[in-house]
Amino acid sequence: MSNFFALNSITTGRGWSVNVTGYTNALRKLVCCLFMLFFSTAYAFSQQKLATGEHFADVNGVKLHYYVSGKGPVCLAPSPGWGAHVDYMRSLTPFEKHFTMVYYDTRKSGLSSGPDDPTKYTDQDFMNDMDSLRTYLGLSKVWLTGHSGGGYQVLNYGSLYNDHVNGIIALDAMARYDSLHHAEMMKVINETKNGPEFEKAKAAFFGKDTVKRTMDEFLEVILPLYFTNTQIIRTIPKLKVSDKAYAYTRASNIFKSKNLLDDLHNIKVPVLVIVGDGDFICGVESEAKRIHAHIPTSRLVIVKNAGHLPWIEQPKEFYKAFEQWAKEQHI
């Protein structure tokens, strides 16, 4: 019979038939509804994870602490990795006009947890955390912003997982710690850090004093080296540093064990490389220009009269360059 299939009941012996077409259509509708319900629930859940405010993500056996702020495509912004809290990165508020910024503390930094095992703070551990956070947030692709050691992380991630990245903003980033890096650091210090406000900072940085300090205290003493105008330090909040994170990352030799320059050609997405012309720790010649030279899709911006944090020292010039680049990326 057309569109019907006759069956016999085993218990009664009676003949009965089932409308296969109607049954199939109903089943399809049910599957479709369940499919839509699943993905709408998953979407709603992912949106909760990206609601404005403070959150924690359980990934790789650690709780990553993160803040969400802004509107637009998601941009992950890790802390530098060696212990500094991510709070200072939240001063990049103009970015939030273009992105939903996700500022997160890397393992053991800030309010994030982390294993008490220095072997668990390698380059790959930080890459796994970044990729797991992307997955946790339900995103196939993200933008990335990183400063200093955070810049190292986002460039490293881009070279390994280019297909999961929309674009990268590398702020005073590092890619290779070598003799060229060290030579430029010493040159900048010797030529530009000679006022009385730098003497105590240089003595602490080069280990010439014997004062025992926490990392918070040490960073406060050496902070003048990071600026061309030391007066601006009075206007910014004190940076917080996790002593354990610093000890563990130092023991794992992160930032020094890998030459990122060899892999940067794998990055095919747009990259904005910004550096202060007076940065002593991630210099123009040894870091920014070499990074730019190894990424064909990159643009280099050198901010004049700025040190390691150009968006704080020269916000007008810094954000003008960023806004122009962001407009070209249609974000």
Score class of each variant (00 low, 15 high):
252 S>R: 01
131 D>Y: 10
116 D>N: 13
308 H>I: 15
313 E>F: 01
78 P>H: 12
87 D>F: 08
284 V>A: 05
18 V>I: 08
14 R>N: 01
25 N>I: 13
287 E>G: 06
7 L>N: 12
134 R>C: 01
28 R>C: 11
212 K>H: 07
186 M>Q: 14
109 S>Q: 07
319 Y>A: 07
292 H>N: 13
268 K>M: 01
176 R>N: 01
195 G>Y: 05
169 I>F: 05
171 L>C: 02
238 K>P: 04
130 M>V: 03
322 F>I: 10
280 F>R: 00
21 T>V: 02
74 V>K: 02
155 L>A: 03
220 E>K: 08
60 N>K: 11
323 E>T: 13
153 Q>Y: 06
96 E>I: 01
195 G>M: 02
169 I>T: 06
162 N>F: 04
246 Y>W: 02
162 N>P: 05
108 K>G: 00
187 K>M: 06
132 S>L: 04
173 A>L: 01
144 L>S: 10
205 F>I: 07
120 K>R: 11
12 T>D: 15
145 T>H: 05
24 T>P: 04
136 Y>Q: 05
168 I>G: 03
281 I>L: 09
301 V>Q: 02
175 A>W: 01
252 S>W: 00
149 G>I: 13
137 L>I: 04
210 T>M: 00
283 G>N: 06
72 G>P: 09
224 P>F: 00
34 L>I: 02
247 A>W: 05
150 G>F: 08
27 L>E: 14
253 N>I: 00
213 R>M: 04
286 S>A: 05
100 T>A: 15
137 L>R: 03
129 D>G: 06
214 T>H: 08
58 D>A: 11
258 K>V: 11
297 T>F: 12
325 W>F: 05
183 A>G: 08
244 K>M: 12
222 I>W: 03
165 V>P: 04
119 T>Y: 08
108 K>D: 14
94 P>A: 00
316 K>F: 13
137 L>T: 06
268 K>E: 14
102 V>H: 03
64 L>A: 03
153 Q>H: 13
324 Q>E: 10
244 K>L: 04
65 H>M: 07
89 M>K: 02
141 K>E: 11
33 C>D: 03
271 V>L: 03
319 Y>H: 11
304 K>Y: 02
89 M>W: 04
167 G>S: 07
232 I>N: 12
28 R>T: 09
323 E>R: 12
62 V>N: 05
65 H>D: 15
164 H>L: 14
302 I>V: 09
263 D>M: 13
121 Y>K: 05
44 A>V: 09
140 S>R: 14
68 V>C: 12
101 M>E: 07
63 K>H: 15
98 H>I: 06
108 K>C: 13
94 P>E: 02
300 L>H: 00
277 D>H: 07
253 N>A: 13
32 C>K: 06
165 V>H: 10
269 V>A: 11
51 A>P: 07
206 F>P: 03
195 G>N: 08
253 N>G: 14
72 G>Y: 00
325 W>M: 00
47 Q>W: 06
189 I>R: 15
273 V>R: 03
289 K>Q: 05
286 S>T: 08
135 T>Q: 14
125 D>P: 01
223 L>C: 07
150 G>C: 12
134 R>W: 06
191 E>C: 15
246 Y>S: 09
214 T>N: 09
5 F>L: 11
189 I>F: 09
248 Y>R: 06
262 D>C: 08
68 V>M: 12
68 V>P: 07
